[in-house]
Amino acid sequence: MINLQDIRDTARDMLAKGEVRAVIGYRRGSRGMLAEPAFITDPAQADELVWDPTCFHNLSLYLVEDRKFLAHLRKTANAPIAIVAKGCDARSIVVLMQEHYFKREDVYIIGVSCEGSGVVDERKLAPRLNGIQATNAAFDGDDFVFTTAEGEKRIPACEVMADRCLECRNPFPKEHNLAFGEDKTGRKLAEPFAALTRFEAQGAGQRWDSWSRHFDRCIRCFACRSVCPMCYCDECVVDSITFPVTAETTADEKANRIKWIERSATRSENITYLMTRAMHLAGRCTDCGECERACPVNVPIRMLNNKMEREAREKFGFEPGASIGGPSLVATFLDTDPGDFIR
C-alpha cells in the first residue's frame, strides 16, 4: 500500500532543494471524485498531490508538451522534471527515451506501483453508483472505496477496474528513480488480451459489422491522438493541417506534402486514419488506454492497439517499452519472424 504522504514529501523536498524544476502529478479535480493532472512548481503545493484509483491519465503526455513548449521558447531546461508514473506510464516514458525525445537524466521518475489493483473505468462504475455523486475514491486492498453523499461505498476493485488494468501484468514501473508500492510484476487479475480474444473469436463479417459502426461514429476530433504521448509528431502524416512551418522549412517541403486522406470524417478516411495510427503505435503503445478513454464517441481504439501488441508479443517476442536501449518493433527483425503468410 502506498503512503500518499511519501509522494508529497518527495515532491516537496525535491522542489525545495531545486533538484527538479517541476513535479507532474495528480491532484483532486473539480469534477467530483476525479483526479486531474497537476504541474507543480511550488513546494507548498506538494500537499495537493493525490494517488487514488482515478489517477488514470498518462502524465508522460505532459513531458512531451513540456519539451514542445521549451522548443517553442527556444529554451533548454535548467533542471530535470519529476513525474509520477504508473507501470504503463513509465513504459511510455521509456519509449519516448528510446526515440530520443528526451534523455534519461532530463526526467526524474517517481514510480507508483498499482500493486494488485488499477484505475477505475468510469463507464463500469457509473451504473454501480446509480447516479450518486462520489467525492472521493481510494484504494483499500482488493477493494475501491468511494465516498458519496450517501456514505461510503465499497466495491471489489476487479468489478469496476479498467480492462487494461485487469489484463496488465506489469503494474510496477520498472524504469524509475524512486518507486513506491510493491513490485507485483507478473500478477494476473485476468488473462491478457481477454477482450481482444473474445472479439477475435467472431467471424470476419461480424468483426467488420462492429468496426464499420465504430468507424462511422468517429468524428475525427483527434482527441485520441492529442491525448497519446506517442503521437508527438509535429505533423501527423494523415492530417497535414498540423504541418509545422519553421525557419528551416524549404519551399520544396511545403510543396511536397502528401495528402494521404481527406479531412472529411467519412468512414473510409476515418479507417485510414485509425489504421495508420494503430500501425504507428505498433511496438510503441504501452496500453495506457487513454485514447479510448478520451474518445467522445466510444470508439474502442484500444482494441486496435491491443491487436498490434499481441501480434508483436506472440510473433516477434516484442514487449513495448521494455528498456531504453531496446530495439524498435518495425525497424528490426528476427530470422525467426513468421513468413508462412508469404507465397
Binding site: E200, A204, G205, Q206, R207, W208, D209, W211, S212, I271, M275, A278, M279, A282, L304, K307, M308, E311, A312, K315, F316, L329, V330, A331, T332, F333, D335, D337, P338, G339, F341, I342, R343
Partner: peptide, 29 residues
C-alpha cells in the same frame, strides 16, 4: 525483405482484424 516481412505481417493482421477479407492482401517472394 526481413523488415518488410515484419511490417507486412502487422499490416495484414490489422486489415484482417477489422474484417477485411484476408485474400485482399498478398505478399510473395
Amino acid at each position: 525483405n526481413y523488415l518488410a516481412r515484419r511490417k507486412m505481417h502487422l499490416t495484414m493482421e490489422l486489415l484482417k482484424f477489422i474484417g477485411v477479407e484476408q485474400n485482399r492482401f498478398r505478399m510473395s517472394w
